[in-house]
């Protein structure tokens, strides 16, 4: 299904992650052990494994949100492979702006910013003009059935499912070459789940490299081109 001539977009080599909890007397909590993991353009890889195994941790490492203890995290950015583990904050931010999209499990709301702007913001940061960015935001919000009367309101007071749809819309606003999705359908009804499935498949077909965590087996079946079992790289506690 995936084309071996498509470029590798994500390339983890020997990545380990342990947390040291200083408040607990410096106890060391190993989570991931020597992960080798590569994803090509046009692939959608589902991370699987039991709760607490380290799926979200792996995803946050790829986003540069967590720092790895050992190893390298290669990200193809503007036709160049950059190791996130060694990159400056400035470089990581540039990579996130143009290359790496991330739909977290929960929307982190900024007070007072209206929904339409929250969704359009990633495009605005790419220098897309306001009218075009807002048009794209409208299309996504409509597809995800967020009622139009809510678009001018900040999402702070929205329900969990509504916030999640705003979050998904924001993640799909810019056509990122790499998309990281942490349970993007978790609190959605069937119709919206189908929309998210369609969005994911469209992104993959245009050549995005996608890594996702999908608890819903039907969703996973519908979007994943293969799975990656975290159990195999789980650190012995």
């Amino acid at each position: 299904m995936t084309d071996p001539t498509f470029p590798t977009m994500i390339d983890l080599a020997g990545v380990s992650k342990a947390f040291t909890l200083h408040a607990q007397g410096g106890v060391r909590l190993p989570v991931l052990d020597r992960v080798d993991f590569a994803v090509r353009a046009g692939e959608c890889v589902a991370l699987v494994g039991p709760s607490g195994a380290g799926k979200s941790t792996l995803m946050r490492l790829v986003y540069g949100n967590y720092r790895c203890t050992t190893g390298s995290i290669g990200i193809r950015h503007d036709d160049e492979v950059i190791d996130l583990a060694a990159a400056s904050p400035r470089t990581i931010l540039a990579i996130r702006r143009r290359t790496l999209g991330y739909v977290s499990q929960f929307l982190r709301v900024v007070p007072r910013v209206p929904t339409l702007e929250v969704v359009a913001e990633p495009l605005r940061m790419l220098g897309v003009d306001k009218a075009e960015a807002v048009d794209r935001a409208r299309i996504l919000l409509a597809r995800l059935r967020v009622p139009e009367r809510m678009w001018s309101l900040p999402p702070a007071t929205f329900s969990g499912g509504e916030q999640q749809r705003v979050n998904v819309a924001r993640g799909f606003a810019a056509d990122y070459p790499i998309l990281l999705l942490d349970e993007p359908t978790a609190s959605l009804d069937a119709a919206n789940r189908d929309t998210v499935v369609a969005l994911i498949n469209e992104a993959r077909e245009r050549g995005a490299a996608i890594v996702g965590i999908f608890h819903d087996a039907a969703v996973r079946e519908a979007v994943a081109t293969r799975t990656f079992d975290i159990e195999g790289v789980r650190a012995a506690a």
Binding site: H22, R60, N65, Y66, R67, P89, I92, L93
Partner: peptide, 21 residues
């Protein structure tokens, strides 16, 4: 020192962990 979300979500130094917690 580092990227803001890294420092806040994956603090390394005992003092930073104390602040965040």
């Amino acid at each position: 020192a580092g990227l803001t979300d890294q420092v806040l979500d994956d603090p390394q130094h005992p003092y930073t962990q104390l602040l965040v917690n």
